[in-house]
Design a protein around this nucleic acid. Structure first.
Lengths: 339, 339
DNA sequence: CTGTTAGCGCGTTCAC
DNA sequence: GTGAACGCGCTAACAG
């Protein structure tokens, strides 16, 4: 049962297909009588014009831009997305934005394949997800320009670089500079699949600093779990129950840092008096809550990624964007010198 | 200069169009020699396969869903969007989501027109924007199912209802119940164009309650400005400089409420001891900051809107969604009885 | 006013 | 292996 076409409608209404076309585009003058008959036939058959065919015959080349990202529900991705929107702005005619929300690694490859096979995209922005050689080829073959925002850039494609390891070092160095020697890490479970390893990378920065200052690495001070405020809360509770507990916590994201803080407070301790807490991201929320954190310029990175893509697509209209500022330590009220 | 087609490529490579098609789909066995010639021609001409034509000939009906909203950068819209994503979920093959971000009222109508003329959408969700009769007709004519999330629903189209007036009354009644008689309103400027009037509506609820309790309405206690934390901060500063200042403030959004709170604190006053503050929305942020507010079920409303649309599109796969819970007063730590 | 015809660009048969 | 038709569903231009 394929969907009805104007041909079917024409047959049922006893008219030519041209007339049907006129009716659905309510252009030209069609006699009121035949118009009614056509409309009736459309009703009866449940006819819906096929937009793809319509586009082809009208010669419109869809100018859509895609964004592939995971975890769209995280604030950090939302803020990046905001930057993307800013970059697209309000050109006339505008590019439209198609969101591809990757929820499982297995689906990622399927999704890219689907995009290259059937999406009508001018360009694609891939956020914090790896781009394999095959995917690069597939994208190029289908004429889709792409840019990645990534921790693992290389020269084989345009890419806005992030540096999770280095930025994490910034955070932990801050704690060390405050005199802390007993520092814990709270983050996401390390992924074994082919996602980028944000938590691994930030944990790597954490380890580097410990090593650099010859501080002991204690596995029981590294807590990994699902992402989220409540999960971080639970992990921190366990952390505080240890015989020897840390005096500072580096949480791999601001949302998790807020969970850490709640747990510390609920344990009858004070932040930063008893325990210092530093987060990562600098989402908008963090300014409101006074959280010390690492600013990774979320909005700017999204904007920059999209600007890079636009520049690729239309060099005359969009100039090459400025590079991303380096991650920056933002000291607020949740870290203090070791007593 | 129209873009090159496979025909042009075929001519340049001295082959038939069938061969070109095989090459770009790297299917079938093409001799290595001719493949190279074709690839070269593609290079030379800068040929990009036309996805629309490709779709038509393959019979894929684009199954995209659109979301029209304004102010995508506001947290409240982001949380609605999260709900929308949840509803779409991960069906296989999935619907993709196209974002139409309306930044000026004038552009809204153009945008809808563009959507009806050239977008390949199965359905459209219109969030907090009015749908004129003409727009309804245009959408129906182009076979695009649509659902609105709106404060002004009527029977002419499927719609998830909001009630800003009633919900605002809830907020102000709470303040009155706490003994407050001098209540200020901080909100967005009233729009004169054809957007929905969120600020007007919430202000209307505010006025209703004052009238109901025979409280005086003082124009100088109604502050309207641009949306944002900092703008709300400035308005509140002015408010506190008045000879007679309010003892409670109803901010039309949580983000603005946070600005109000900062201003109160910076003026050397305490919240809620000296001034009670209530917001509106219950964005995630508000739980973290202890803000008393009105929960309008943002995420649920987005989810519900999209579920309604999906149910319309595929009644067999998606059941009719449950209705939206009523707005709810969430009392936290920023409101207290009048001293 | 209305039926017919020729494309839109590409995938997919077919024969060669 | 490869070229040349045919058709996807629709719009537009042309006759009537």
């Amino acid at each position: 049962m394929r969907p009805p076409t104007i041909k079917d409608v024409a047959a049922r209404a006893g008219v030519g297909i041209g007339t049907v076309s006129r009716v659905i585009n309510n252009s030209a003058q069609v006699s009121d009588d035949t118009r009614q008959r056509v409309l009736q036939a459309i009703q009866d058959l449940g006819f819906r014009p096929n937009t793809v065919a319509r586009q082809l015959s009208q010669g419109v080349n869809a100018q859509n831009l895609g964004v592939v990202l995971s975890y769209i529900s995280h604030y950090s991705f939302m803020e990046r997305l905001r930057g993307v929107q800013l970059a697209i702005g309000q050109k006339d005619p505008p590019f439209e934005l198609i969101l591809y929300n990757i929820m499982s690694p297995r689906r990622y490859d399927d999704q890219i394949r689907a995009i290259t096979r059937q999406a009508t995209l001018a360009g694609l922005l891939i956020i914090a997800l790896p781009v394999s050689l095959q995917q690069q080829k597939a994208l190029r073959d289908s004429g889709i320009q792409f840019v990645a925002i990534s921790d693992h850039c290389n020269d084989s494609y345009p890419c806005v670089g992030l540096d999770n390891v280095g930025a994490a070092e910034l955070a932990v160095e801050h704690l060390v500079a405050l005199g802390h020697r007993h520092i814990a890490y709270v983050g996401d479970m390390f992924k074994t699949e082919h996602y980028f390893a944000t938590s691994q990378d930030r944990h790597k920065g954490f380890s580097h600093v410990l090593k650099r200052h010859e501080l002991e690495y204690r596995p029981q001070w590294v807590r990994l779990g699902l992402h989220g405020r409540d999960e971080a809360y639970a992990m921190t509770r366990d952390l505080l129950n240890l015989d020897e507990r840390p005096t500072a916590v580096f949480a791999m994201s601001d949302v998790q840092a807020l969970g850490v803080i709640s747990a510390v407070q609920d344990a009858g301790l004070r932040v930063p008096h008893d325990v210092s807490v530093i987060g990562f991201d600098d989402i908008e929320l963090s300014a409101y809550t006074g959280l010390t954190t690492i600013r990774q310029h979320l909005e700017d990175s999204g904007r920059l990624g999209m600007e890079t893509l636009l520049h690729l697509l239309r060099p005359d209209e969009y100039s090459a964007p400025h590079p991303l500022p380096a991650p920056k330590l933002i000291v607020r009220q949740t870290t203090a010198p070791l007593r």
